[in-house]
Design a protein around this nucleic acid. Structure first.
Lengths: 242, 242
DNA sequence: CGAGGGTTTGATGATAGTCAAAGTGAGTGG
DNA sequence: CCACTCACTTTGACTATCATCAAACCCTCG
């Protein structure tokens, strides 16, 4: 009972680029199946040469790296439409692990077909590179956050970015978006301790900027949050969907 | 008096992938000129839609982002062979600025030719994507460093990585490589203050792990440094040169 | 010789980490 | 239906890593 690419519920969202019938067909051929996983399931492991690549169709997850001493750095959060395994496809080895936070449905692709797919159309190759460049762009921003912003500003930045990602996928309902992540996840993403993370969220709550509870994030004043984070609010940018 | 791609001094280094005559010709056609800049010269600006892209032919530089309040995060250091402007080429806008640290010579490409170049051969397109994925990989590591390692471990990590990058370009002479960066640059790369950076380097020096002076970095015990940094030493990996 | 950029060192203070424990809510089993 | 557990969140007290401030030092350069 897998989803046909032609009827993909993501592709019709305005955030994703349109695709020609031909490209759609190639994508459908590239797709080798579908996978549903429960919360907490590891999807790809750091250092592994994964035989399969994925696109998140439903659900959310996270990318992370672990140090030998057990410290964990959350690299990014995964939303529907995200391509998973680019590093495995290009470099033959993942630089980070990926796991599901909610229950997820993934479109599965064989790594062995990846190069053919890449070759199949310049536009597709370009899309994949676009994704890589965009991820690089985002990671530069994350690095700047963790390296330069203080806890309050970091937290504001993270909340704005997470809200925006959910919002552009139309997951918003009067100011609130689903938020399945734990405070420990946010802490590991921002390089803060769990306790300090909790207290920092509390400060933003006291300032009436947001509410974070029951698995949903409510933004009360996006502009004020953006000010705390020192970022400019911009419109959503369309992006490719593999 | 520009360098002919066929006689490129970088291309003969073992770290860089070989290239067919045909690919070489295409690259030479893509190259629109050469540029020499003095230390401190800005090469690309964050947010700019640069009309030109570059490959570092000689010299070193750095990528960085600045926050509105003036804080600077160094994203990465630039070595000969690095491609500069991928984000401008793919996304139409740079996510960070780039400036020269030493005097540099850059191969210049027109952004308007970039897409044609990308299309000109699947191998070239793949190379560009490979570079993007590798950068993403590295940024994940940087993020993990800044987010999770303490100052001593961060510093050890940075020194190992910088040493390795120089080493694979054969810049090493019995344990020492050129190191034109200021302590402020390292501080901004690791999210540390200048003072703390200085004291942290001093600690590594006291432990007899390295010496850093007169523009050169001397590693006395690479393995011990890697241990402090919690990283595995691996061999150099060949990479494409645009 | 004075100026300026970079490095080094010492003193003090704040942000964030650690430790510890209580509170909350969902889920389980007697 | 009421403990009881377990995972997560919240709060308070204490600590330390790292930032800030200030000043000296070292070199090169004009």
């Amino acid at each position: 009972m897998t989803t046909d690419c032609k009827a993909c519920p993501l592709r019709s969202q305005s955030i994703f680029d349109d695709m020609t019938q031909d490209e759609l067909k190639k994508t459908a051929r590239f797709k080798s199946g579908e996978l549903s996983v429960d919360p907490g399931t590891p999807i790809l492991m750091e250092g592994s040469n994964a035989p399969q690549l994925y696109t998140a169709l439903r659900g959310m997850g996270l990318r992370y790296k672990t140090l030998p001493d057990g410290q964990r750095q959350v690299i990014n959060f995964i939303f529907p439409g995200d391509f998973i395994g680019l590093q495995a496809g290009m470099l033959g080895e993942m630089g980070h692990s990926v796991e599901a936070t909610t229950r997820m449905t993934l479109c599965v692709f064989d790594r062995s077909d990846f190069f053919d797919f890449f070759k199949s159309s310049t536009a597709r190759a370009f899309d994949i590179t676009w994704l890589a460049a965009t991820e690089e762009h985002f990671l530069g921003e994350s690095l700047t956050t963790v390296g330069q912003r203080d806890a309050l500003s970091s937290m504001a930045w993270a909340m704005v970015r997470l809200f925006q990602r959910a919002d552009e996928l139309n997951m918003q309902q009067n100011g609130a978006v689903p938020f399945p992540f734990k405070q420990q996840d946010i802490a590991d993403a921002l390089g803060l301790s769990l306790v300090h993370t909790n207290k920092t969220i509390a400060r933003l709550r006291q300032r009436q900027l947001l509410t974070l509870s029951d698995g949903s994030l409510h933004i009360h004043d996006l502009q004020a949050l953006a000010d705390v984070a020192q970022i400019e609010l911009e419109g959503h940018r369309r992006r490719p969907l593999i």
